[in-house]
Amino acid sequence: MMTNTNQRLTQGQFSFLPDLTDTQITAQLDYALKNGWAIGVEYTDDPHPRNTYWEMFGNPMFDLKDAAGALMEINSARKTFPNQYIRVTAFDATRGVESPTMSYIVNRPAKEPGFGLVRQEVDGRAIRYTIHSYATDKPESERY
């Protein structure tokens, strides 16, 4: 179990707040749509901080007028992967950004085992650090 403040993975914009309700998620989706950003839903069972590419639950959604469509997709992802991490990412295509502009977690496994720190002692007092995701001790799709 994780021992940090919230005993949970704190990636994303809102991990220090209580889990977002669907109403709160809708408000955040509306914010993204108002800014003209595309919305992607991604999931993973390996939340290593440098695991950049979570699996896409379908392509990012462009041209939405209303948050309900994205929420439907989020709920569908939750139903399919109830015990994995699911995050919502907003993408801004504006020149000079062309990168994600929002990212927040909307689903977590019931138990979050967290990470271990592997220290390899090298020359002098220096150490090479490796962050190890406990979940990945098990094969894919058998974690959590």
Partner: peptide
Amino acid sequence: LYCMEAVNKAAAATGE
């Protein structure tokens, strides 16, 4: 050395 121990330990503790 000590700061990087702190940084890595905190990263492992939070996943960030």
